[in-house]
Simulated scan of single mutants.
Amino acid sequence: MTDPNQHQTPPAWYPDPDPNNPGGQRWWDGARWTEHSRPAVPAPQPLYDAGQDARPPAARHPTSTQPGYARPSQPAYPPSATQPTYAPTPAPAYASGGYAGATPDAAAFPPVKPGTSAHTWAIWLVVGLPLLTAIAYMFVDFTAYFRAIIALSASGSTPGSGDVSRFSSALSGFVIEVLLIDVLGLVIYGLSVMFAYFDWRELQRRGFVRPFHWAWTFLGQPVYVIGRTVVARRRGGTDTMWPIWGMIAVFVIIIVLVVIKVVMVFNVIYSTVGTYGPGVS
């Protein structure tokens, strides 16, 4: 998943994280540091200092054409050596593994103060609201609907029997309950988006620079919870994993409730079929 706030840093000159180039800049190509760097601009020096050599530059630094110039002596090498040996040049610092985390984004997204918690009251409502839909489904009367179907099948829909009217009544009640559950789901969806906005605003207040945007909740509650956790950890927040564990716990509880409801419905169907005999189809 890609955080929209984690945009790619554009190519430009940025402060060089190489300790061998203090105050300098290095070119960032949009994905990594390059070998192109420039040193820090030195502070302008005074044109003349009475405490220094007052002679003009040409007199202080004579050339080979000026009187008094002496060529520096060349180092003497042993007769057996044809050329001097040099130590191998180390790899440039920008190519080392330590540069991996020293990206320009480190300055754009500074960490929060140590000990800043990512716990908010709003994130727990975002995590726990889907549980209400599963609890509501536990109160839907599936058994009356299936009993009416089995009774209608056993009677053969003979004229004058009350099975058809009972089936119509059970069907209408079942449809109304399902529609109410659907409306509840839409309300919970809207509340999740609203509480995600409150959570996003609270994280900003605590110093999280550009936290995971609340609008991702429109794609689903898990999308926001997971993305929020990743970004909060990158910003150095504490207690960032608890919403993930809470979401997993809610998911497990929902699975358990669904299994219990299915077992209850099948037990009713089995007992009802046994009442009407094996010939029910």
Rank of each mutant, 00 (worst) to 15 (best):
P46L: 03
P46T: 00
D49Q: 09
D49L: 11
G51R: 14
G51M: 09
G51I: 03
G51L: 10
Q52V: 00
Q52I: 00
Q52G: 08
Q52L: 12
D53Q: 06
D53H: 07
D53T: 07
A54G: 15
R55G: 01
R55L: 03
R55T: 03
P56H: 06
P56Y: 04
P57R: 07
P57G: 00
P57S: 03
A58W: 10
A59K: 13
R60W: 01
P62H: 00
T63N: 10
T65A: 15
T65R: 15
T65D: 14
Q66N: 06
Q66D: 14
G68F: 03
G68E: 03
Y69P: 05
Y69H: 13
A70N: 10
R71N: 08
R71M: 13
R71A: 15
P72S: 10
S73Y: 09
Q74E: 14
Q74L: 14
P75T: 01
P75M: 04
A76C: 06
Y77V: 12
P78T: 02
P79T: 07
S80V: 11
A81G: 04
A81L: 13
A81I: 09
T82N: 12
Q83I: 08
Q83Y: 13
P84Y: 03
T85V: 12
Y86H: 13
Y86Q: 12
P88W: 03
P88Y: 04
P88K: 11
T89D: 09
T89Y: 06
P90L: 00
P90K: 04
A91N: 07
A91M: 07
P92M: 05
P92T: 10
A93L: 14
Y94M: 04
Y94V: 08
A95W: 01
A95V: 05
S96F: 03
S96H: 08
G97S: 10
G97I: 01
G98H: 07
G98V: 11
Y99C: 02
A100V: 11
G101M: 13
G101D: 15
G101W: 10
G101I: 11
A102D: 12
T103F: 03
T103R: 14
T103C: 05
P104Y: 09
A106E: 12
A106D: 09
A107D: 14
F109L: 14
F109T: 09
F109Y: 15
P110R: 04
P110M: 08
P110V: 05
V112L: 01
V112Y: 02
